[in-house]
Design a binder for these strands. Structure first.
Lengths: 374, 374
DNA sequence: CACCAGTGTGAATCCGAGT
DNA sequence: AACTCGGATTCACACTGGT
């Protein structure tokens, strides 16, 4: 069975066809989001502007325009205006995000604290902050500070209790069987990947595809809808297409839209087998312990122990276990009881003995799965 | 002439003797700061409560219990209450900071965005955000998020145009003649360094001395006054004493004050020669000898010799060496100078003495590599 | 003394489907 | 919405005790 077919089959897809999927909306970011329905996207990736020369975006809450940043008063004023801008687009983003979706925002120390503070105030629940360590950062030429060698990403769910997608096993596989950490190292975007026109870079802050690749692979499933409200030259769209995710881009500048369109048109989607391969460690169907007893993989009356033979139990006909002292329960419950532990995975705790020694009963489950799954 | 007398001779020192130098004020942090005069400290290092908002208990996969931060000092009624607390202590901190001083605050994603936002709103000017990459972070036991493997420090001056101390050359020397980056790697505080009482850790969040060492070495000069408004077990004080800086600690909990007092009393100040750091324009070490110093493999002030004990030198705090005749430089340069040779491999030339006799410092490098490389 | 196996632990917002 | 219970889930060090 392929990955694409089996994910999220029960999701309401009634209006998904009305969404401007896999297209760029060439409009103001807040206006464009306002045109989308509530709770319609699975993921938002945002790379908002952070220099204080925001042009039309940078207006005071009363609508008046903020002029150049020159003295302290203007600085304070523009900081407040940046706050207002940030809260405005995040509010729209929150409205169109599904309840089980999540949002990523990338920034530097110039803006990320304002962004993170607003994210918390609006009710999002921060899941991680991620550090992108630049393998080849620009040096600090004047020698006045530390080399600014990283950017920060914030990953947040819609609320404290909200569900969200995290492909734990995929990330662990990607990281050589160690848990993926919160610090990621990538080179900055350059070489062939960097979009250029007439010898000049098209966009000043084009993000590396590897970064988006990891973001989307970690927090979306195939077929999900990914929105990027500051699309730029479309890195998010290119990677989404490659990974079999739908995307919606919002970008006001015609030059960026043109570059992004060409770039995404040329991007090749991975075929399903490639996507399946990367989804290592897919969830196995649940197997009841009793099924193994029913099918003769274990016999009622058979003795089980833990790996160090400190605890013992006997298999009963109904798939429960009984300890010598009379305590009984499921493989998990009895394992927890005997250890005095809050919980226990009975599949790895309990062992049975065969000609080659002790083996976890999970081995029997695997045998059963191999024999019964296509 | 001692260090304290010769630095910053032009500075007004009229009231410095009235400051509670090198002592711990056992009071509420804001009250204690309110008792200090305007513009009286050169550096503030703050490790405020993170407002972790932890839920129920957490157990490791093996069933053992995670000893979490459950102290009352980390509990706040709401996000707004934490905001108010943050702005209150930062306001006092700003008042007592000299105009050419700077402030460091460390935090995690739970609080750092609130802190950074407040820092900007109060008129501080962020110079860098620094990432402390933990070499050995606690894993994410439930597989629900990325391993939270870093904390963030914000470094800010008092305003956009304000002067501040940054020992660029010292940092570059410490980092193998490469500019020091904004991402730093240190192990979490454990082992012998971790303060314990009756077998239990004294403080749940003791910071590693290596971290403070780099902070103070980067942004203060000998004789400066360093204030830590959340002193805890006094890492800041211990390192300040070691580096010849004055310190003022503020800590409300008597248990922490007692532990900090004992610890700092036992800390040894470095010899003055070890504190004289490389001046701008001096020569270039080619290896990260400074890392060994920073991590305690070698101590500033420690003596090195060549294999035949014909030449001698003293390790300095920034990873350079000083000979008895006043010549100084990297391990390679000083080795060459003393021998009258065109070049020298300092790693094999310089030796340190331990219980088993002389060993080349390269052995320490190998130990470090073994301890830090995968 | 060296080496190995076993144990303990660190600023952590740490489950989720089914009833 | 609250509750039950099946079952999935850990990395780097430091320290201890035995061979």
């Amino acid at each position: 069975m392929g990955v694409l077919e089996k994910v999220r089959p029960g999701r309401a897809r009634a209006w998904i066809d009305t969404l401007p999927l896999d297209t760029i909306l060439m409009r103001d970011c807040i206006e464009a989001m306002a045109s989308l329905p509530d709770k319609c996207v699975d993921l938002i990736f945002a790379d908002p502007p952070y220099n204080l020369q925001l042009g039309g975006d940078l207006n005071r809450p009363d609508g008046s325009h903020v002029d150049a940043v020159t003295d302290d008063w203007d600085k304070f004023d523009s900081l407040a205006a940046y706050d207002a801008f940030t809260r405005a687009w995040l509010t729209e983003a929150r409205r169109i995000l599904k309840d089980d979706g999540s949002i990523w925002v990338i920034g530097s120390y110039h803006n990320i604290f304002k962004v993170g503070s607003a994210i918390q105030d609006l009710g999002f629940w921060i899941l991680n902050d991620i550090v992108w360590r630049k393998a080849n950062p620009m040096p600090n030429f004047k020698g006045t500070r530390f080399t600014n060698a990283h950017e920060t990403l914030i990953w947040a769910s819609k609320g404290e209790k909200a569900k969200y997608t995290f492909n734990y096993r995929t990330m662990k596989t990607l990281n050589d069987e160690l848990q993926m950490r919160s610090d990621w190292e990538f080179p900055i975007c350059g070489g062939q990947e960097r979009l250029k026109k007439d010898g000049h870079k098209v966009h000043p802050t084009q993000k590396p595809e590897a970064l988006l690749y990891r973001v989307l692979l970690a927090s979306t499933k195939p077929g999900d809808v990914v929105l990027d409200p500051f699309f730029g030259t479309g890195t998010t769209g290119a990677v989404a297409k490659r990974l079999g995710r739908h995307w919606i881009g919002i970008e006001r500048e015609p030059g960026y839209v043109e570059a992004a369109s060409e770039r995404i048109a040329a991007a090749l989607p991975l075929d399903e087998s490639a996507l399946t391969t990367m989804q290592a460690g897919k969830a196995a169907p649940r197997v009841a312990f009793g099924t193994l007893v029913e099918n003769g993989y274990l016999t009622p009356g058979q003795k089980l122990t833990d790996a160090r033979r400190r605890h013992h139990a006997v298999v009963r006909a109904d798939g429960s276990l009984a300890a010598p002292d009379g305590q009984a329960g499921s493989i998990h419950k009895l394992g927890a009881l005997l250890q005095g532990a809050p919980s226990c995975n009975g599949w790895s705790f309990w062992h049975y003995e065969d000609a080659n020694g002790l083996k976890p009963i999970d081995a029997l489950r695997q045998t059963w799965l191999l024999a019964t799954q296509p």
